[in-house]
Design a protein around this nucleic acid. Structure first.
Length: 200
DNA sequence: CAATAGATCATCT
DNA sequence: GATGATCTATTGC
C-alpha cells in the first residue's frame, strides 16, 4: 500500500498542537493509524507506548528535569529523540501541557511512501514487514536522529498527518516492552493483528 | 521455533 | 562504573 507524496499530502492534514496537549495515554492511542512524515519518507503508526512522566519509574522523566529530559518538560507537539544501547535512537512525541513530562514512544510503522530510501537506509531488512517494525528500526529507516530532538512536529520536515478517510481501528492494549520498572502497566497500544508491529 | 551474546556510548551514580 | 524504552546473528532444540 504505497503512495506518492503528492497523493499522501492531498489525502491528509497536518495535526496541530491540540492533538498533543492531552494525557499521554490518549495521545498514544490516537496516534495509531496516523502518518509519520520525515523528509520524503512516510509510514503509518501501528504501535505506540505511553510514558507518564515523573510518576512513571520506567520513564526517562522519572528523575526530573535534566539536560536530557528538558524537551520532555517543554511544550507538547515536539519530538524527543534519545540514544540507547550505544547504537540506536528512539522517537517520542512530547504530550501534555508544558511542565508535564508525558510522552509517546513510536514503536513501529507500516511503510507508506519513500520506501526505496527506507530500504537503502536498512539494507539488512529483507521483508517490508521488517523495515520499521521496532523503535530503533523506524528511526533508521526514516533518517531520524538526535538532530531532530526538540523539533516542532506541527511545522517542519518532521510531522504527523491524519488521513481524510481514516477507518476505525481495533486496538490491542498490552504491557510495555523492554522495561524493568512498572513492567505490568497496560500502556502499549497496537493495531490488532497488524503485521508491521514489533514482535514484542 | 527460542534463547542468548555482542555491539557500543550517553547518561547518571 | 553500571545501566539501558534495541537489533542482529548465532547457537541449540
Amino acid at each position: 500500500m504505497s503512495l506518492t507524496f503528492a497523493e499522501l499530502l492531498k489525502n491528509s492534514s497536518l495535526l496541530g498542537r491540540g492533538f498533543y496537549a492531552r494525557p499521554a495515554v490518549d495521545v498514544a492511542r490516537d496516534c495509531l493509524g496516523k502518518i509519520l512524515v520525515h523528509g520524503k519518507t512516510a509510514g503509518r503508526i501501528v504501535e505506540t507506548e505511553a510514558y507518564l512522566g515523573v510518576h512513571d519509574r520506567a520513564a526517562h522523566a522519572w528523575r526530573g528535569l535534566t539536560d536530557r529530559t528538558r524537551v520532555l518538560f517543554g511544550p507538547p507537539g515536539h519530538a524527543y529523540v534519545y540514544f540507547i544501547y550505544g547504537m540506536y535512537e528512539c522517537l517520542n512525541f512530547v504530550a501534555e501541557e508544558e511542565g508535564q513530562a508525558g510522552c509517546v514512544l513510536i514503536r513501529a510503522l507500516e511503510p507508506v511512501a519513500g520506501i526505496a530510501s527506507m530500504r537503502r537506509r536498512r539494507p539488512k531488512a529483507s521483508r517490508l514487514e521488517d523495515l520499521a517494525s521496532g523503535p530503533g528500526k523506524l528511526t533508521l529507516a526514516m533518517g531520524i536522529t538526535r538532530k531532530q530532538n526538540g523539533a516542532d512536529l506541527t511545522r517542519g520536515p518532521l510531522q504527523v498527518r491524519r488521513e481524510r478517510d481514516q477507518r476505525s481501528l481495533e486496538i490491542l492494549v498490552t504491557p510495555r516492552i523492554g522495561i524493568t520498572h512498572c513492567a505490568d502497566w497496560p500502556l502499549r497500544f497496537v493495531i490488532a493483528g497488524n503485521r508491521f508491529a514489533s514482535r514484542g
